[in-house]
Nucleic acid binder design. Structure first.
Lengths: 209, 209
DNA sequence: AAAGAATTTTAATCTGGATTAAAATAATGC
DNA sequence: GCATTATTTTAATCCAGATTAAAATTCTTT
């Protein structure tokens, strides 16, 4: 049986040490990062599959071994972006003391991952052109993420660490600033350090009671 | 002579009461707003010329009367976005007392226009796929805008209204939050009021000395 | 080192949406 | 109302880039 996408992770490999250790999964991961980088740097319409393949030193056709089509490539990029955001929030909630502290940690953690080795995370600019089922799933993830963040803000208001505010708008403002980062960040380590250092303070200073 | 784009504004009309009053310019303006709306809502790749034309009750081919091709349509959307941003900043600089005050006003003015009748402003997501000359021009406008904003921050630090900070990162954070607005704002007047009311405070609270 | 499976390439096709030319309709000036 | 110009549509092309099938290569296992 051909190991074509959709049928893949060959059953026997799924059990291996770590699913993500198989060559297949490693290469697929590299592909998703390459795609995210292309989409962020050259725009979606400006990135052909060949552009993505070039980054990997492959042929455009080779990508079809990992993914059914371009739509799925974008979809998987967005899922990855969603995972990264969720993990950052999980960690922040686990570590945070007060609501305000949790907000600061979330901002920091998320930026650390975005600008770090898990490297470029795709901006979700093309959600509407995904297939309906994918679109709905990504939208749901995205809404859930916002909702959790607003929950943290409410918690902060409750515990007195955050002043009463419009949590919806506050969330929009902070998330917007974060979501925009991949648009101008190009991998420079010194810049990465600045963002991680500055953003949490800049974005949370307005919240304190 | 056919009034085809590139040769247009028929000379005699350019002198008329206001250039923007000619039917041609009015319709072109409507088209740019329709395009911005489509691009923001459905993504660039998800918006065909037919989609844009449908909003106007026209045929896709009709758009070519106003614009040479899709690339130019995007380019003009971005120029418009640039104008709106520049005007907001001009006004803020004219009205602002201290640096901090100018920052607040800029945020407010820009949001008022974005969410107001001059209505949807295109997110500049596809700059890299513009023609080189257009790309460079838009990038220059964009950089100039950021530079001016950082200038205001420095001025504020100078006049004591803003605490010392990394102006580059502070600019990135605030601009990011603003640039992301068209991504979630869908024209609701009540929401518009909230943004205009909340964002200036949320985004500038961290700056005060 | 040979068999079989995984990965990549070569070389086509296929296609949606951009683009164009010509014709049709609407507006405007005289 | 007629002539001229502006705007829009109809009806084709056109084409870059996605997609596919089959062949070639590389890797793994024994």
């Amino acid at each position: 049986m051909q190991n074509r996408s959709g049928l893949k992770p060959p059953a026997w490999k799924t059990m291996a040490p770590k699913a993500s250790d198989s060559r297949f999964e490693l290469q697929k991961g590299r592909m998703l990062r390459a795609a995210a980088r292309c989409f962020n740097e050259k725009g979606y319409s400006g990135s052909s599959l060949k552009d993505v393949a070039d980054v990997l030193g492959l042929t455009d056709a080779a990508l079809y071994y990992y993914v059914k089509n371009k739509e799925e490539l974008v979809y998987l990029c967005y899922l990855r972006a969603g995972d990264v955001g969720r993990e950052a929030m999980d960690q922040a909630i686990a570590d945070g003391h007060t609501g305000l502290d949790t907000v600061r940690r979330y901002i920091r953690y998320h930026l650390e991952v975005m600008t770090g080795e898990r490297g470029p995370i795709a901006i979700m600019s093309e959600i509407p052109s995904l297939l309906p089922e994918h679109r709905d799933e990504v939208l749901a993830i995205s809404r859930e993420h916002s909702a959790r963040f607003e929950g943290i803000l409410r918690q902060g208001i409750g515990d007195g660490s955050i002043a009463a505010c419009d949590v919806r708008m506050t969330g929009n403002a902070i998330m917007g600033a974060l979501n925009w980062v991949p648009k101008w960040f190009r991998g420079d380590a010194a810049v990465a350090a600045s963002v991680v250092e500055e953003f949490p303070r800049i974005l949370s200073a307005g919240l304190a009671r």
